[in-house]
Each structure stands twice: as C-alpha cells, then as structure tokens.
C-alpha cells in the first residue's frame, strides 16, 4: 500500500478551458440580454415619441391609419375586456382542477393520469389550433345551436358568429394549463404537516382545503393567474377568427359583440397599412402600449414568485 505524500500545492494558474467555458456561456447570457435591450430600446425610443394622453384616450372614429387623430382606447378596452372575461372562466376552473389533483385524487388513479396527460398536451398545442377549436366548437357548434334554440328564425346570427365571449372562452381553454400547473405547484409546496394538523383537530377535508391550504397557496395561485393573463393579453392567433375585429366604430356593448384588440391592431398596422412609413409612429406607440401591459403583468408575477422562493428557502 502506497503512502500518499502531501505534495506542495502549486500556485494558482489560469485554466484556459475553464476561462473559455465561462467566457462563452457568459457571452451567450450577455447576448440574450443585449437583444432584449435593443428591442426594448428601439420600441421605447420610437414609441415614446408618439406617446401622448390623446393617443391613450383617442378612438378610431375617423380613420385608424390617421397619425394625428387615431388612438388606442378601443383596443385597450377590447383587450382588457377579453382578458378579464377570460380570467373569470379560467382561474376558478384551473384552481379547482388543481385542488382536485393534489388534494382529492389518488395520484395513481386513471382519471388523474389522464388529466395530467391532457394538461401536458394542452400546454403544447399551437395557439392557432385553439383558434380553429374556438371557431369549430364555440361559434359553429355551440353558437349556431344557441341561435337555433334561443332565436329561431332570426335572419342574422347572434351567437353563431365571432364575439368577445367566444374569444375569451378560447383563451381560457388555452391558458388552463398555466393556471393548473402554477396552482398545483404551490399546493404541493405546502407541508403535509399543516393538513394533518388541521384534520387532526377534526376539520373536514373541505374545511382544511378552504381554511388552511388555499390561503397558503394564494401567492402561487395569483402568480399563475397573472401569467395566464399576460400570456393571453399578447396572443393574437387564437382570436383571429373568434372575435377580433379589423375595425369597429364603437366599443363592444355586449358579450356577442366583436372587439378591437391591441395585438391584432399591431398586426394590422404592420401588415395592412396603406403607407407604412407614415403610420409608423402609431404602430410604435401601439406596440409600446401592448408591451407596457404585458411587461407590467410579467413583472408582478416575477416579483411574487421571487418572494415565494425566498420565503420557501427561509422555511427550509
């Protein structure tokens, strides 16, 4: 048996491989941030120039391509309305499904496995396919049947055409996995001991879920909701055929009205403008409004998540 000898430790030297590796990966990170920076700077620089109170509160009654007069109020209203409507559908449905999966279902049951697989698959479905689904199911199936049932003999379809209700429902289906996954994650992070303590005091399962589990999971649920909203706010593909209007003279009045949308408007201004150079200022300003909206939502979600993480780290 050899005797390990304690050789003197050599002085520190530069390891070229190590240096290279750190340099390259660091460079990749910097590059990503630089691209992000360039995009944001470009938009803020050009968009800020046409940013005025009038742009915020102005409508499109005159001409949506008129640089001096047009504003984004109808699009902000439309986007806000469809997003709020969507959260009314998706947050309760997503939270309840997540509660079922974590608190009630046995993790090995067939039903649970199917739901999990379904949710996973749903998350990967391209957004345009949700648009097709919205058209095929909500408008052409549900809407047409509602028309036949509620308003037999009406000349014009009321339900069986694109509408803010159908767009919101389509988006709700699309964002369902976001809410389910975020809620499930925060439910699982709650120590089992808390549930046991509540049950041991004679609380029913429902009482335990309602008074102990859900309040604890609230920040996580909130994050999921906000992420879903921010994802939906910027999506255009699913609402192309389910509710977004190219142009409307007035704000939507009912659930069956179509609506103008910020993201769709960006698309129109980018691709359908009669004179792209002339309308560029309103295009940039509209992009900036949309970005401000989604970034503000994302930032809130990131901050809440960061707080949860620190709290969880402190608990360990």
């Amino acid at each position: 048996m050899s005797n390990p000898v304690f050789n003197p430790i050599p002085p520190r030297r530069l390891d070229p491989v190590s240096l290279c590796f750190t340099g390259l990966t660091g460079l990749a990170t910097v590059l990503i941030l630089a691209i992000l920076g360039v995009i944001l700077a470009n938009i803020v620089y050009h968009g800020g120039a046409n940013f005025s109170w009038g742009f915020f509160t102005g409508g499109t009654a005159q001409d949506m391509f008129d640089v001096g007069k047009s504003g984004v109020l109808p699009m902000i209203a439309g986007t806000a309305a469809r997003v709020i409507l969507m959260s009314l559908f998706v947050i309760p449905a997503g939270v309840i499904t997540a509660v079922y999966l974590t608190e009630y279902a046995r993790s090995s049951s067939l039903h649970t496995r199917i739901i999990r697989g379904a949710v996973n698959n749903l998350a990967g479905v391209p957004s345009i396919v949700f648009g097709l689904f919205g058209l095929g199911f909500f408008i052409n199936f549900l809407g047409q049947r509602l028309d036949a049932w509620l308003l037999p003999g009406a000349a014009e379809p009321v339900w069986g055409k694109p509408a803010i209700l159908w767009a919101s429902l389509t988006l709700a289906v699309m964002t369902l996995p976001v809410v389910i996954v975020a809620t499930e994650e925060s439910l699982r992070a709650i120590p089992q001991g808390l549930r046991e303590a509540s049950l041991a005091l004679g609380a029913t399962k429902l009482q335990t879920v309602w008074r102990i589990v859900l309040p604890q999971a609230l920040p996580g649920i909130l994050t999921g909701g906000i992420l879903a909203i921010s994802r939906a706010a910027g999506e255009v593909a699913p609402i192309l055929f389910t509710g977004a209007a190219y142009y409307m003279a007035r704000l939507p009045q009912s659930l069956t009205d179509q609506f103008m949308d910020l993201g769709y408007h960006v698309f129109i201004l980018s691709t359908q403008s009669p004179n792209i150079d002339k309308t560029r200022p309103i295009l940039y300003a509209t992009v900036m409004v949309l970005l401000l909206l989604t970034f503000a939502l994302n930032l809130v979600a990131i901050l809440i998540r960061a707080r949860i993480r620190t709290r969880m780290r402190a608990a360990h």
Partner: peptide
C-alpha cells in the same frame, strides 16, 4: 496551514488544494 502552506494565500490554487 495545510502541509505547512497557508491555503488562504491568494496565490494558492484551490483546485489543487482540494485534490490533496
């Protein structure tokens, strides 16, 4: 000091230290 050498000396190679 490990093996008589000051290991928090900035000149010391930490990687080599850990191999020993």
């Amino acid at each position: 000091l490990v093996g008589g050498q000051e290991i928090y000396d900035p000149e010391i190679d930490v990687i080599e230290l850990r191999k020993r």
